[in-house]
Design a protein around this nucleic acid. Sequence first.
DNA 1: CGAGTGCTCCAAAGCGCTTTGGCTGATTTG
DNA 2: CAAATCAGCCAAAGCGCTTTGGAGCACTCG
Lengths: 340, 340
Amino acid sequence: MNLKQLSHMLSLSQTTVSRALNGYPEVSEETRRRVMDAAKRHGYRPNPSARRLATGKSGMIGYVLPTGAAVDIDPHFVEFLSGLGDYARSHELDLVLSPADADDEETTYRRIVANRQVDAVYLSAPRPADRRLALVNTLGIPFIVHGRSEGLDFDYPYLDIDNEGAFHEAARLLTQLGHKRLALINGNDRETFAIHRERGMRRALAASGLTLGERQVCSVTMTEENGYRAARRLIEGDEAPTAILCSSLIMALGVVRAVRDLGLTIPGDLSLVAHDDVFPWLRPENFPVPLSTTRSSIRLAGARVAERLAARISGLEEGARGEVWPVDLVIRGSVAGAPV
Amino acid sequence: MNLKQLSHMLSLSQTTVSRALNGYPEVSEETRRRVMDAAKRHGYRPNPSARRLATGKSGMIGYVLPTGAAVDIDPHFVEFLSGLGDYARSHELDLVLSPADADDEETTYRRIVANRQVDAVYLSAPRPADRRLALVNTLGIPFIVHGRSEGLDFDYPYLDIDNEGAFHEAARLLTQLGHKRLALINGNDRETFAIHRERGMRRALAASGLTLGERQVCSVTMTEENGYRAARRLIEGDEAPTAILCSSLIMALGVVRAVRDLGLTIPGDLSLVAHDDVFPWLRPENFPVPLSTTRSSIRLAGARVAERLAARISGLEEGARGEVWPVDLVIRGSVAGAPV
DNA sequence: CGAGTGCTCCAAAGCGCTTTGGCTGATTTG
DNA sequence: CAAATCAGCCAAAGCGCTTTGGAGCACTCG
């Protein structure tokens, strides 16, 4: 069933039918109703390729997926996707994942924009002075960044959580509990979120006249194993920390294992706070000792990004609005006063 | 730069240019070279919407993503995606995720097929007599199933791992070690993979004259928490098992925690084997006691599915070929003889 | 009463590509 | 040597939709 057939059986022109369906004003309400009715009854659905060809719009949002033998997609991605999908579903938006060589995402961005495959894109895991943002910005396609960059000479729309504030609060709590030697097990410190977390932590320490030594900061890919290694290195080094901030629950698993292996206890010997993106399959309250966290649902962020993307596509949102969500600090059993 | 412009500057017809570019034979080699050259030099790229409209092909593969407030996307998905992306990237294939209400995926399948949005689709997590397969099969779009269904009156192409064999082997090992009371912590038993695993396990037990009681089998969503609960229920019940098979590493985390909470040890009091899909961020060898596993890389499966999908699209693969991959049984410290 | 004003609706021109059905001029073939 | 064949190219017809530029037809108003 296509437009031609439909309009023919209604004895109307394709123009009128098209307009009726797309809510244009120059068609009478009665006609519109008739058309809508017939369309529904015959299950008419406009062919998206044709529409795209005519309008240039696709009803899809894009994401360039860095891939490669050595590249692992972040497990956070799937939760973000859940949220995105939640919103997208109710608006008949599809998501196009364009796999790209992790070393050369630019070509892919150019391609999907040139091809008009998608109406908008979102970017994630931005770095300071991220070239992708500059590219996408000049390419002129609507976009939203999940996270923030830094040191760019233009503004852009983003959604981020207050990573700095979160780790500031967490560190402040620990210093208030008397901890003097803190350490940070962070994610990849080329990404802005990690930089912000470190910054927040340093600021809190500075307020108590403390500092964070170079050796008290680890920056690694967020795996259980890396959490374990980092924790061992920290604890077995001189100046062993009495409290650790950790950038992910998965790494926290490794920290907990390391602490156990070393015969220490949480929170007796070590206080631990980790960031929780709220996974359904791994929850901080179920850690051997319930884990204190800075919490922010990455899933909700996904839904919000989709919502804003949709708004930008339809012209409802414009400009470079940045949105920063506060992060909850949730205290559980894994923190205590500094050991004496 | 579009076809018209390009053909004009070459003083050729659009027909000829199009044919030259698409490798049709009715164009001389010299002309072809000239055209190819000019196309590359001017960075000509055919507009995919136009091409799609004309050919009906899109260069994209589709996946219907079940979503909903209560629906969590399986974290395995992201690893599968890594593999899929790896292959897709090198073949300029994009992946379209169409979010669907988890209770009504059919509408979405119909939509994406009717719309010709994608050239092929893949389905995952099939159930016995899965209606989606029947639907997709009659819809006539190329597809591949990751996993298998059962009880369907037609054949279909799939890629699966030997779940039954894997759990058969694992269970056999345990019985050989003298275990008499085994238990299974399985995934959702409405999905075929879970059924196969249980079947394999029962078969192995039967061979030793043992059986698996109803109460020795748990079927739950694969989260850490559910693993913990299931383990506690099993161990604290009467007829506590001396060995547990577990369908995922994430649940195994919970099992380990439960065992600890109860003051027991692995493998002294309980032997544990889990299925490992090979996540980069959680590895069985890094469990407190290195975990024995049945191992199969879900990432490789993703790549293979993409490869076969591409083959089907271009007509290189036909028919209902099923492919079943063997699963490695990897013995580590978490199994031992049955306690006396 | 004639011009102006809305309101509906339509024919036709794209959007950029592929593909069908020729049309040429050169080469073979009986 | 006329007829058949063939390689190489082209014009034009779609694919199914949106959108431009009117057209027709009441009505209103000075």
